[in-house]
Design a protein around this nucleic acid. Structure first.
Lengths: 346, 346
DNA sequence: GCCTCGGGATAGAGCGCTCTCCCCGGCCGC
DNA sequence: GCGGCCGGGGAGAGCGCTCTATCCCGAGGC
């Protein structure tokens, strides 16, 4: 980078062959005489040649890069960008997504390009970047239900794959969890444990996942002879979990089992229960969802429903890769099965 | 992206001007007749033109992209890539770094390209990518003290800025915290509170930051008449904090104040204290470091030393930008001051 | 012995942009 | 009135790579 970088031409001159031959050796295309192959390799070594990504991208129309977009709601005018990015990254969930994505991309020498779209302005910025070919495609993790980005991407013809089913249908592939199935596991665990007065703290009901978890939970409870389950809506945060449990406890002081739609809220539930003098799990059993890091640090450690987030994220990247390569043209969906992780809280 | 994307040429034809003029309008270079400017804008609108990033990069030799590299130790052969990325992202600290970096980059329409270098192999991969011009420069966050990457980058002539002072000197700019000053704040807070039998749980002593925090802490204690401070080394994790505190408590059952070198370990300290029947902060006061999200979710909420991580990360990005633009050629360092955040634990 | 065939290498035409040079015409100074 | 200057625009040469079309040459077929 300091002195003028060597080009294909330079290598060709040193090796005594043409540019095209060097290119073929580098890309492993067609039969090249082994002897020449070797001398080209040595020339590359000697010159310290590194192919220029931009030049290659210009002709191949590939950047070897995919956008990893964290997309917020419509317009949360109160919240500014820093708060948004901070909040997103504070959630260990997103870290697992990145981990899974990188797991797929890296062996293929691709990289994720981080983008945020939490306002109308940044959303159109992201869209413009993609149309300019900053990345070959997009992986979208929406934090809100009515995210307009997926539809915009589909319209722009940008290859994209979503994490979680969008609330409004859109012609894009997505990966998701069998949320109802996860809720069923939670319900059955509580029932098998002997709980009979069970309540649930849901996620924000605008989110499809929250609805599915609630529906799956109710369904299983009903099948097992519990047609009525008290419900309080939370917002996936610690505070909202505390508030929700606080209300439920006042109305149902004899509760002996709680299903919270994520671990953070489950932690809030545990705190309220302790404050109100209930022992977890002896007086009240608590089951969370996600198996995030708080499930382990929480006292007591949470029994929870594990999402295979890394696998899901890797599959999302794989799907996008197929769309980019044109191997797959029609959108599809991949649904993953959750797993119950039993710890101390239930 | 679906049909053949319009090029500068197309826009020029529609507007009835030359390619160069359109380019000038887009880049705001030189004076262009306002009337022509307007008609070019309309032509861009009509054609739905978006400049091609690769073509532009090829000639400007800029990608508008910087690599954000999370760099591990030498070779942790036991740990594989997924575990590494998962661990990194589980740490809320990294989220704050990303947040700060994005805060600087976005208004300049640049993006971070995420890379991981935790093994010799991935390290050379990252180096190769950078030499190919995948990014204009690199922001490096090392998780270990003896990270060889910074030196490699410096040798390769890649513009780079480090988060935290490298253990071996290298000709690269970095941002860092006044760790000794932070430790001083913690020590004085504990002493002013009346604590007299104070112990500390350090970070891994191979890391410069851990050493500095310990040195600063000891220093202040000594100045205030406490020449001896029991020390246990931790690994910045919850478990290591618990183990360290467990040992310290056995040897010094009368302890009344603890300084932990990060919040995660402070949380572990609190848990052990509670298990052994000590009240925090009444029996033992606990001070953490970082002001990460666990400082808030911990019971009791942690008194801690706040690093202005977002500001530091933004400054790191700004510094890199200066190096890339050639405005700054000599490496420099920027040291930030910590701040004591008083909550319930001390 | 001539023609065909095909493996192996080359020449050169772009990919879509930027930017340097150059041109044109009007305005100023002398 | 003429040359120089300057604002505004165009032509065209690359940037470094890929890839198609083409060429060369030795081997095989009749």
């Amino acid at each position: 980078m300091s002195r003028q970088a060597p080009t294909l031409e330079d290598v060709a001159r040193v090796a005594g062959v043409s540019r095209a031959t060097v290119s073929r050796v580098i890309n492993g295309v067609r039969n090249v005489d082994p002897g020449i192959q070797e001398s080209v390799r040595q020339a590359i070594e000697r010159t310290g040649y590194a192919p220029n990504r931009a030049a290659r991208s210009l002709v191949t129309r590939r950047t070897q890069t995919v956008a990893l977009i964290v997309s917020g709601a419509g317009d949360t005018p109160g919240e500014e960008q820093n708060a948004f990015t901070a909040r997103v990254f504070a959630d260990p969930f997103f870290g697992r997504v990145v981990s899974g994505v990188v797991g797929y991309l890296r062996p293929r020498s691709m990289h994720p390009l981080l983008m945020f779209a939490e306002s109308a302005e940044t959303r159109s910025q992201v869209l413009a970047d993609l149309r300019q070919g900053s990345a070959d495609g997009a992986l979208v993790v929406s934090t809100h239900a009515d995210d307009p980005l997926p539809a915009l991407l589909a319209d722009a013809g940008v290859p994209a794959v979503l994490f979680a089913r969008p609330s409004r249908p859109v012609r894009l592939s997505y990966v998701d969890l069998a949320h109802r199935e996860g809720a069923r596991l939670a319900a059955e665990h509580l029932l098998n444990r002997g709980c009979r007065r069970i309540v649930t703290v849901t996620g924000p009901l605008g989110v499809a996942a929250s609805q599915d978890r609630l529906a799956g939970f109710r369904d299983t409870m009903a099948r097992r002879g519990h047609p009525y389950v008290p419900v309080a809506e939370g917002g996936f945060t610690l505070d909202s979990g505390m508030a929700a449990m606080s209300g439920l406890l006042s109305e149902h002081p004899d509760v002996d089992g709680v299903f919270a739609a994520n671990d953070l809220m489950a932690q809030g539930v545990c705190q309220i229960l302790r404050e109100r003098g209930r022992q977890v799990p002896d007086d009240v059993a608590v089951v969370g969802f996600d198996d995030s890091s708080v499930a382990v640090t929480c006292r007591p450690p949470l029994t929870t429903v594990r999402q295979p987030v890394e696998e899901m994220a890797a599959a999302m990247a794989a799907l996008l890769d197929e769309h980019i390569r044109g191997v797959r043209t029609e959108p599809t969906s991949l649904i993953f099965d959750p797993e119950l992780v039993v710890r101390a809280s239930a």
